[in-house]
Design a protein around this nucleic acid. Structure first.
Ligand SMILES: [Mn+2]
Ligand SMILES: [Mn+2]
Ligand SMILES: [Zn+2]
Ligand SMILES: [Zn+2]
Lengths: 136, 136
DNA sequence: TTGCAAATGCAATAGTGTTGCATTGTTTAT
DNA sequence: ATAAACAATGCAACACTATTGCATTTGCAA
């Protein structure tokens, strides 16, 4: 199984719930919330287990978390080869104002901004709003 | 009173709680959360009243809301002349990784990004992380 | 196959934010 | 100054996201 090798590669045990979560996220082109996943897995797993699996995945660089306009977490598989100590997700997060879906979009020239004196920048995130390709 | 005229200008009634909130936010150089305000007003107002006042202020363009890394709302006075139908806050939101404070920072050249085909962008937000001037 | 550490399920809890409704307060007109 | 109209407030209840503790089950390596 593809999911199993991904888990092993990050030093994680391969369990039914984890494999199911990874397969769902792999089959979805936008970021998914905990509520989304809970609905998709049906009664296959407890909601707390989902929270814990998602947190573990994030800590190991398998997925990354983005908060939507309501402050709710949405998760998507990492594109780059992220790990526990290397999390590089330099792309734009776009939330559609119609369907509320959040998309991870590549950006050709990732912008740089100058900071005022005294402020030391370590990460810049781009969050966008608009209408997605499916709602257009 | 300064707060009173600000409220009147936006067609809002001048009440003790509202004036107090505006004075607190005017005296704070970073964005404040509902919990911050609740602590600062002491027993002067109910927590629900604070939520409602903040929502009203935002709807009338007096303040704007930004979600921090934890998804909690923080509020700051609008710099530009915002109103109910005009909300222009083109600046960067910077959260310090040490003190967790969120600052509204002006940006000389606000960046533009090209969107993939099918995606129609309406607003781009800049969210940054790092160490603030006080924690440096 | 067995043992141990890790993962899971279930219950309880914390925190943020909203809604309904009765009461109080602000404003406008008289 | 007074009263009527309407908006704001306080209080209780609720919805939702997320976390923690603990007993039980499971994955995996020896
Ligand atoms: Mn992403
Ligand atoms: Mn701001
Ligand atoms: Zn859409
Ligand atoms: Zn700081």
């Amino acid at each position: 199984m593809e999911s199993t090798s991904l888990l092993k590669r990050h030093g994680l045990r391969s369990t039914p719930v984890r494999r199911l979560l990874l397969e769902i996220m792999d089959a979805t082109e936008h970021a998914v919330s905990h509520a989304d996943l809970e609905q998709k897995v049906g009664g296959e797993a407890d909601r707390v287990t989902l929270y814990r699996a998602l947190n573990t995945f994030e800590e190991h660089g398998i997925i990354h978390k983005v908060l939507d306009r309501e402050g709710v977490a949405r998760f998507a598989l990492c594109m780059d080869n992220c790990s526990t100590h290397t999390h590089v997700d330099e792309h734009l997060h776009f939330q559609c104002t119609v369907c509320s879906n959040v998309y991870c979009l590549p950006v050709e020239h990732y912008p740089r901004v100058a900071m005022p004196t005294g402020f030391n920048l370590s990460r810049l995130s781009l969050v966008a709003e608009g209408v997605c390709k499916r709602c257009n």
